[in-house]
Design a protein around this nucleic acid. Structure first.
Lengths: 336, 336
DNA sequence: CTGAAAGCGCTAACAA
DNA sequence: TTGTTAGCGCTTTCAG
């Protein structure tokens, strides 16, 4: 019932606690024989060291914090898997904290982290995040931080992103090549780097190909699904609705498909649609969905790898390590 | 840079550490005036209490562990949101640990938890989990545990499940009513309660409606996606392949659709398909997918609520609190 | 090779 | 109302 601690173990073995501790850390100061006895008895008594006591003493929590907007999202859940795969190898735990796209939540989480709960942070900012004081505070406290996907551009640290501008460009160009001349853009939040870069790529493509840009075809979506659905429906209901759409995030897929169904618009007949997405079901949608797909797992891995490098040697400067990884464009039937 | 601690704060304010501590916990022993001064200075100096020191001293980590097979799954990610929503309210953190369906991982995670990292555990067992010694060890250590969805039936504690038998029955009966007479079943792991209950429902429905049961139409899927795809393809390639399929988990959807596409089978023409699934995209698949959908968010909420009840008063007996919540059957085009 | 003891940051019983 | 102090379980000098 009561948790057995290092002292109990020491008493049981007639050894001192320091010997136990060293044996557990495989110190060279301890004889093989004693090590074995310790390990054996530990197993028998079911002794597990208290991680908080170690943290307190050693000033390392062996935890990294992962701050993301949402977990019910293919991109983020795959990224978590990537992060976790390297954390596990390093003997670290991953504390996943969800902002649910709220700046308030994000601030509170980072604040809490400054108490020493984690040794480093990997994060993707919320849609509401337009200033970065809370992040600077965290870093000023000595906590290394790596951004992935949704970064704060003005902060000097490692950023793992994809080629958002190019992908936005490519997606738009593809629609143009497929014959669209009224192309809409579904963004999320004007503060968000990824949304803005993708938008710039979109605009550049329109410009390069001399396709008209219509402000009314740009929709800024929010965190409110019902609201987004209404906005999308409204856009597609207009007399001169777009005949092509680029959407910046996975969660906009279903509302677009449903709005089309409701309004009797056919994809790709009346509307060609391409979405930034890691949905596994993209290929079996009706119609199958053309996507820009990010290497989510790998991004998580890279972010974690960098974070651990900086954890391992403080001389390592994260600010020199940003990486831009290409996304892949996958043509399917929604843009035929 | 250096983290400021309670002692620094005390020195700054010319107060004792205990006064600070009490002020922070809004103790009635401290004057309003002092409280304000403390809080004010804490904010100014950016003081955040070290949670590990509190844990160590107070023997409560204020963390709960969530052990699940996978996070890249709609059901589990929604459940996490449910759990998190109540944990947050209680001032607790959620430590999400992934087994990736490995028994070995599951054992290691639970073992680690016994060091005091968490105050309680919410879990859904892996497909490989056929014995429960590791779970009993955990509970013997005084840690309350609540199962959700994938339970160990032999363990006496709260279990939040859905009506798996009835859902399996209903899904199968629906296929029969739609004219299927050769119905296949895609399970996962023979050790898993949910898979087995759903299978029993399936068998009972076949029996009640005098439809033949063919062992060769039951496939036991694994954690290896490529292998599953091969098994499914093989099943559908047979001369007397099933004309209806019940699948027990979300991740089997894509392989079934792709196998049909590859083999030139039409859904629902040649094969009617229904799946246990929380996929948001179910309604926009080609064809839209009939599902048994579990109340994932609510299940997470309930599991967490029960866990906190037992954390709040030890007299509370989890073993009396199991709940079976109905899933919903949603008819769509894949079983027309 | 092993042990004694200080102390990580905090809480809470007890004193003042 | 505020202060003193003894630990929580562990690591880590430093001594033996």
């Amino acid at each position: 019932m009561k948790n057995i601690n290092i002292k109990d173990l020491a008493r049981e073995l007639n050894l001192s606690v320091s010997t136990i501790s060293k044996a557990f850390h495989d110190s060279h100061e301890i004889s093989e024989d004693t090590k074995n006895r310790v390990l054996e008895t530990a197993r028998r008594l079911n002794y597990v060291p208290n991680p908080y006591a170690s943290s307190l003493r050693g000033r390392r929590s062996k935890n990294i914090g992962v701050v993301i907007p949402e977990v019910a999202d293919s991109f983020f859940s795959l990224a978590i898997n990537g992060i976790e795969s390297v954390a596990k190898e390093k003997g670290y735990h991953v504390l996943i904290c969800l902002t649910h796209e709220s700046f308030e939540n994000e601030k509170n989480i980072l604040k809490e982290f400054q108490g020493g709960r984690v040794d480093g942070v990997i994060m993707s900012v919320s849609t509401e995040t337009s200033e970065s004081g809370h992040i600077l505070d965290l870093m000023a406290n000595g906590l290394p931080l790596v951004f992935f996907d949704r970064v704060c551009e003005e902060i000097e640290t490692a950023k793992i992103t994809t080629d958002d501008f190019e992908s936005g460009y490519k997606a738009t160009e593809h629609l143009i090549q497929q014959g669209c001349d009224k192309i809409g853009f579904l963004g999320i939040s004007k503060c968000l780097s990824i949304s803005n870069r993708r938008f710039e790529g979109y605009q550049k493509a329109l410009n390069d190909h001399v396709v008209a840009y219509d402000t009314k075809h740009t929709v800024s979506c929010t965190n409110d699904a019902a609201h987004n659905a209404a906005l999308i429906k409204e856009l597609l209901q207009r007399k001169d609705h777009p005949n092509g759409i680029v959407a910046t995030v996975e969660k906009l897929t279903t509302p677009v498909y449903l709005a089309c169904a409701e309004l009797g618009l056919s994809i790709p007949g009346d509307l060609k649609f391409i979405c930034f997405s890691n949905l596994e079901t993209a290929s079996i949608l009706n119609p199958s969905l053309s996507t820009i797909t990010q290497p989510a797992f790998e991004m998580g891995q890279m972010a974690a790898t960098l974070l651990f490098k900086s954890l391992e040697k403080t001389s390592f400067s994260l600010s020199m390590e940003s990486q831009v990884i290409p996304s892949s464009f996958i043509k399917r039937n929604s843009t035929d």
